[in-house]
Design a binder for these strands. Structure first.
Lengths: 248, 248
DNA sequence: CTTAGTTACGTACAACGTACGTAGTGCGCT
DNA sequence: AGCGCACTACGTACGTTGTACGTAACTAAG
């Protein structure tokens, strides 16, 4: 009988291979790769145990030998993508620039895997690659004399900004992948309602906000400003660093 | 035949009552209330069309007369909870304090409805009460001379901080409501793995972070600091306002 | 060699969202 | 008044999901 306990368990604590029995046909990496491939093509909702098993070329239930619960499959996916950072051996020494670069890299990765942002706000666990990522983030702050608690808070905030903003950018596109209509249609309908509501005069400031300019929004610029503000907020509490670099 | 189109639609644009036929047994508010009651008790995963219908005392499919898709039920829930703010008639004039108060109120509301944070990062639509909320947020910034685009970005950032942090605080508790084990068990198992991993020496800074102090974390204080940093970041770009009030 | 743990996988079940058909109801029209 | 149609109500049913369970084959440890 398969070892599928009704107790909480961390997949990373379970050995990938334990001597006895026939050798497994796949590795965890194979499975993570298959799941990510499916998500990239068909959206996160296309990631089902059946699909992943089919992609691997095995029976559905065989998958449960490797992945006790579907949530663990998600963790595998997050960890795999978290391994796509090509982290430098050592940070440059300019913590602000290093963290900003890292945040931009994270944003880029999440654009390649649009389902990642949604997953990251649903799965909270530590995994090998996420720990590696956090360790590197902390190493960027080595030069700063502050308790690690404070550094962790900053790292968490930067990560929060990245996932929040990228999720906002991408969720419509991701969601409509498993819907019978397009993201553009959805957006059009919602904007039509918003326009009607705004025209009612009940929300004058909202109306003014939407009347203003309204050229296409540069999402990366918005992200940049948000990120800069967070770093500014940290900066302003520790005098002696360069006060306010231009946003460019 | 029921009017359930395969086209995108905003539930708020559909009239709640349209003359003809027998009068509906429930209002949208009834349905939202029932769904929220279920979510409060059994977690978000307990909110199914069947459960909500049963709570209302009607057949499952009757619900589809009011709510064309399940997503719309979610929007109803978000809107209802967004109506729980008791927004003052007019902001006090101190935008920083007003926004902070609002953020704290939002955090408190999401603690009462632990599923709210997760829903808000999944549902992106404007609804009557969310628009009221945004309008009020903007009105807090009336005294500031800045383009509305900039104000909107600040409001979005504050909201982002709230949902991100509250979601982080609450997601484990929420998630384990539909799991056969407790949040404490889950946490214990994950911490055990983390401890073992940290002891390996591969993540020295992470290890230092967890070794440090480690009294119970005051989540509200963490939230406060994050919020303050965001407001600081906005502050630092517009000289002339009070530079840096104490975090309490 | 034995044996116990592992892999593989088909079957099966409960729960989900929801398409569809049918029956009943009452407003608005002529 | 009375016809008709839009609306409500709801049972049935389908496809899809996660996954519990049983069985058969396999292989390393004793």
């Amino acid at each position: 009988m398969a070892g599928r306990p009704a107790e909480p368990e961390v997949i990373w604590a379970r050995p990938e291979r334990s001597g006895r029995g026939p050798k497994p046909a796949f590795s965890r990496a194979d499975i993570a790769a298959a799941a990510c491939r499916i998500a990239d093509e068909g959206g996160l909702d296309a990631v089902t145990m059946r699909h992943v098993a089919a992609e691997l070329g095995c029976g559905t239930m065989s998958l449960y030998n490797y992945v006790p619960r579907k949530e663990d499959l998600y963790e595998l996916m997050v960890d795999r993508v978290s391994g796509e950072y090509d982290l430098p051996e050592k940070p440059s020494g300019d913590w602000r620039a290093d963290l900003a670069t890292l945040a931009h890299r994270a944003r880029a990765i999440m654009h390649v895997h649009p389902w990642m942002a949604r997953l990251m706000s649903a799965v909270y666990g530590f995994s090998p690659n996420t720990m590696r990522y956090i360790e590197y983030s902390l190493s960027c702050l080595d030069a700063i004399d502050a308790p690690y608690g404070e550094k962790m808070e900053l790292v968490a905030m930067v990560n929060g900004v990245v996932t929040t903003y990228v999720a906002n950018e991408l969720q419509t596109a991701e969601r409509t992948k498993s819907l019978p209509w397009s993201a553009e249609q959805e957006h059009a309908v919602r904007m039509a309602y918003l326009g009607r509501e705004i025209a009612s005069g009940r929300y004058p400031r909202l109306a003014a906000a939407f009347a203003e300019d309204s050229g296409p929004i540069d999402m990366e610029a918005v992200f940049d400003r948000a990120l800069a503000r967070v770093l500014d907020g940290f900066d302003s509490r520790r005098p002696g660093t360069s006060p306010r670099p231009e946003t460019s």
